[in-house]
């Protein structure tokens, strides 16, 4: 009699101790919250995307013509069009959002590309300005990042970003510690080598993918 009772209790406990049964509330909540969050994302996602595009358009003159020229109202008269670009490299299709900027008279001012890649904490989203022939970097701007405050997030500072201005896109850029000496070197943010490497990697990959097609597009426009 006693033994039987023990058995049923154990069976009951066995069911109750099952991980899934124990965690049912967590699972149900995760589902409910998941649905709530995807609704929020569906509603607000487009608004956030528009904000980013507006910010990009605002930054285009500064990225192409330098910070001082960017302040000049006349230079802000750049015509900006978004060109979706697909690059096929070793069988993999990659799409880029390229902003084409033209002066009022129709000559090409340069290109700004929005790209993202994995940083140390989360994805880093950045804008890369290139001159019309895509041979030179004209500017860099960090749109979105969640790097470590005080260390990795220094990648947004002008002082660090300015290193990229006027770098040639011939070869790839390299990150060095303790002061860049060569032309293709970028000084890393101290204490944030991974964040620095991520930014440089993103830029190198983008340049490698887009240099050719952009140069071709620029030549076509000239003809």
């Amino acid at each position: 009699m006693v033994e039987q009772g023990d058995n049923t209790t154990r069976k009951k406990n066995g069911f109750r101790n099952n991980y899934i049964v124990q965690a049912w509330l967590g699972i149900v909540l995760a589902l409910v919250f998941g649905i709530a969050l995807s609704t929020v994302q569906a509603v607000l996602g487009p608004v956030i995307a528009t904000n980013k595009i507006n910010e990009t358009k605002e930054k285009v003159p500064e990225l192409l013509l330098g910070r001082d020229a960017g302040q000049d109202t006349e230079d802000r008269q750049l015509q900006i069009t978004i060109l979706p670009m697909t690059v096929a490299k070793s069988g993999i299709q990659k799409s880029y959002n390229v902003f084409e900027a033209k002066y009022a008279d129709g000559t090409l001012a340069g290109w700004v590309t929005k790209v993202d890649g994995q940083g140390y904490a989360d994805r880093i989203e950045l804008l890369l300005g290139l001159n019309p022939s895509a041979e030179e970097i004209t500017g860099l701007y960090i749109l979105d990042q969640k790097e470590t405050p005080g260390l990795g997030n220094k990648i947004v500072e002008e002082r660090w970003r300015d290193q990229f201005t006027l770098k040639k896109t011939q070869g790839s850029l390299r990150v060095v510690k303790g002061g860049a000496k060569e032309k293709d070197e970028i000084d890393s943010v101290s204490g944030a080598t991974i964040s620095s490497n991520s930014v440089v990697d993103i830029i190198n990959k983008t340049v490698a993918d887009l240099k050719q097609p952009l140069a071709v597009a620029a030549r076509k426009q000239k003809d």
Partner: peptide
Amino acid sequence: KPHLRIVIFTLTIATFVTIADRVLAAYLY
């Protein structure tokens, strides 16, 4: 459940924080 409460707390808090973060990014960029 006492031993699973912290998980539930964190899950709930994370959800509302994400909502707050998205709303800020949309309306106070």
